[in-house]
Nucleic acid binder design. Structure first.
Lengths: 184, 184
DNA sequence: GAGTAGACTGACTAAACAGTCGGTTTTTTC
DNA sequence: GAAAAAACCGACTGTTTAGTCAGTCTACTC
């Protein structure tokens, strides 16, 4: 693994554990086994390092989701696959997922960076809105999506807080059917 | 307003805007119009100030919710009232709500403080679990609660991101019926 | 094997930080 | 109205911070 990758990996770990301001560049360098100068050789500032981590995680997730639903038949199956893929990604990339949620709530991430992140999910938002409008619903696609996504995140939080349930696939099925009720 | 209250109010505002580590005690004092010494006279450390804000907001919310549902008939109405009260509190105490969500995601808040916060909602969690077990569900009360609460938070996020919908009461009703589907 | 470009180093710096302290003002109590 | 207590002040301190810089090392090219 290159030193650059070592820095990114260590930073992700430390940021998740101690927050952005709670982790110094010196700590990252030390734990990654590089000099402080090396960190600033690869990333011109701490902010740039954080941005790269945030957008990297978002890209990873977006690619993962897109791959999971390319050959799905119909909208219902597509959403089902996306749901399972998202939950699966979250529990198998726990620190990335936590980092992620931390970013969404943190004022450290600027508006422009956040927008770049949202843009990576445009494909999904469009599809979802299309589904809703074709059903002639009385509520907007975005409202429905926010509630649906919230329910999904709620379930993931439950899995992460109760690790023994992480691999309980029947539970996943029930949880999906509960989330699906929102749309049905 | 006492200087103590001025400090708390200013701190809430600045923390929500710039994060815990992004806000110095000097900034809080300055904007609150007091000396740095005064801040440390009332709160023995920055950490204690944050704890007080976090637990204060939680207590406020818990009291508000409890008041909203004391004379409710039956579990369904109780949950309905709690739902509307929670959404209402969130949009009318926006900065407190945001601060709150930030705390939940931030590693700055220690486990023991977080537990104290959760304890304030014990009354609600117990009721909710009771409801679920009496229905003989195949899924645990906590799982259901996490999904339900996630959906509710998703809707609040939607309202806060789309301020023009904040007072759209018919939308609230639809959103509640969607969340209720999860339990039905 | 000389030349060179980029990776890497770690001691260093200027600014910012949480928290202190000796002293002053305000409020309360008798 | 004197004495005690509590609130308040802001200059100060030792530490930590992000980021720099002058120079070394490594790998590749011609």
């Amino acid at each position: 693994m290159s030193k650059r990758e070592q820095i990114l990996e260590t930073a992700l770990e430390l940021f998740t554990e101690h927050g952005f301001r709670g982790t110094s560049t010196a700590e990252i360098s030390k734990q990654a086994g590089v000099a402080t100068g090396t960190l600033f050789h690869h990333f011109k500032s701490k902010e740039e390092l954080i941005e790269e981590l945030y957008l990297g995680a978002k890209t990873d997730l977006a690619d993962y989701l897109q791959a999971a639903c390319t050959d799905a038949n119909g909208m219902e199956e597509k959403i089902k696959r996306l749901w399972f893929a998202y939950v699966n990604w979250a529990i198998s990339h726990e620190s990335q997922y936590r980092f992620f949620k931390h970013c969404e709530a943190s004022p450290y991430i600027g508006e422009s960076v956040r927008e770049k992140g949202v843009a990576k999910f445009a494909f999904f938002i469009e599809d979802f809105s299309a589904l809703v409008s074709e059903r002639g619903d009385k509520v907007s696609g975005m409202t429905l999506l926010d509630i649906f996504a919230g329910a999904m995140d709620g379930f993931i939080r439950h899995l992460l807080n109760n690790p023994e349930t992480k691999t309980d696939k029947p539970l996943w099925d029930i949880a999906f059917s509960l989330c699906w009720k929102i749309l049905g």
